[in-house]
């Protein structure tokens, strides 16, 4: 051949979008940085410790898996960022006074039970971060419902002693406790203004307060074309409509704005329910998934025994995802006709 060039023959396409799995995961992680910083502002720098430890716990099974596999993966599963993201998301759902060893254990369980045993990334049925959170809530119910009031600049560097408690030993001091807006709603008490809720200066999990900021971070991901945007839109619309409807029927129920800005709703809607692996693979399915989560959240919050329902609503719908996929397969192009134009 006249050719001296060594030509590579492959099949089309010869162009790729820049988004690969790792890029997506790191983008989502990056978008949560402001949320983590806000949490540190409200609840002190201890939050950052919790985050670091949870991520370490989440990364451990991935690292071990890569080490123990007979055929090591070409790229370490740590590099795709999904374990870091899981750890970060879990940390943001934990109360700011949680002992660090519990946070570590939560991260470990999240990835090990939530993902690795299913076969790793892409194969898990339930959102790993929420699996970790559900585990902690079942194992340490008291700790997981002990909240601290949001602070500010003055106690930025105060790290609560509870963080350093040792496993199986009763921690002496329980610090200052406060009730979350949702438990106030459930068990009676003065509800805060929703605008304070939206800004996040209320007791709650580290990263779930600050609805407005989470909304903005989620919108950033939408502009990057990463998020399954139909899910948060469906959840938010449903929760608002259901909350407002109930409030209209009986004003003693909290209204839609309260439901939207309280608890883990925003974090759940933008970051947990949109976990690609455990949410539907069809466009219509995403709408159905979001609407059902929204309804379930309001039902649990208003009529259930728990103050917060976002976690269980999402986990329950994760379980329904295969079914939703099955009944919402897209119709293919060329099967809808305008009358008079066919044949």
């Amino acid at each position: 051949m006249s050719s001296t060039v060594n030509l590579l023959v492959t099949t089309s396409p010869f162009l790729k979008d820049r988004a690969n799995t790792a890029w997506i995961m790191w983008q989502v992680t990056l978008s949560l940085v402001p949320v983590a910083l806000l949490a540190a502002w409200y609840f002190g720098l201890g939050v950052l410790l919790i985050i670091a430890v949870t991520i370490a716990g989440a990364a451990l099974p991935e690292w071990l898996q890569a080490r123990m596999q007979a055929k090591p993966p070409v790229v370490s599963p740590l590099r795709d960022g999904s374990a870091v993201l899981t750890g970060l998301l879990l940390a943001l759902t934990l109360p700011p006074g949680i002992p660090l060893w519990m946070a570590f254990l939560g991260g470990l369980v999240a990835v090990l039970i939530g993902k690795t045993v299913f076969g790793g990334i892409g194969a898990n049925a339930f959102n790993p971060a929420l699996v970790g959170r559900a585990f902690l809530q079942a194992a340490f119910p008291a700790t997981l419902t002990t909240w601290r009031p949001a602070g500010g600049l003055s106690d930025l560097t105060t790290i609560p002693a509870t963080l350093f408690s040792v496993p199986f030993l009763r921690s002496g001091v329980d610090g200052v406790t406060a009730a979350t807006p949702l438990s106030q709603m459930k068990f009676g008490g003065e509800l805060p203004e929703w605008i304070d809720l939206a800004k996040g200066a209320v007791p709650g999990s580290t990263g779930e307060t600050g609805a407005i900021l989470i909304l903005l971070c989620g919108l950033y991901l939408v502009t990057r074309g990463i998020l399954k945007w139909r899910i948060p839109v469906a959840i938010i619309c449903t929760v608002w409509l259901a909350g407002t409807g109930l409030h209209a029927l009986d004003p003693s129920y909290a209204d839609g704005w309260f439901h939207l800005s309280a608890g883990g709703l925003m974090l759940g809607a933008w970051y947990m329910a949109t976990d690609p692996v455990t949410s539907p693979m069809t466009q219509a399915g995403c709408w159905v998934f979001g609407v059902l989560i929204g309804l379930l959240v309001v039902v649990i919050r208003v009529f259930g025994g728990l103050p917060e329902g976002v976690m269980y609503a999402i986990l329950f719908l994760n379980a329904c995802t295969p079914l939703i996929n099955r009944v919402t397969q897209p119709r293919t192009f060329g099967t809808r006709f305008k009358p008079g134009f066919t044949r």
Binding site: K16, D17, N20, T21, V75, G120, I226, P276, T282, P330
Partner: peptide
């Protein structure tokens, strides 16, 4: 030259959103 190392499907919906014939 595009990367061809294949990874697990993460069910991100991007292909469903892209497919012009649904």
């Amino acid at each position: 030259v595009v990367e061809r190392q294949e990874y697990a499907c993460i069910k991100c919906l991007r292909c469903v959103d892209a497919c012009p014939v649904y």
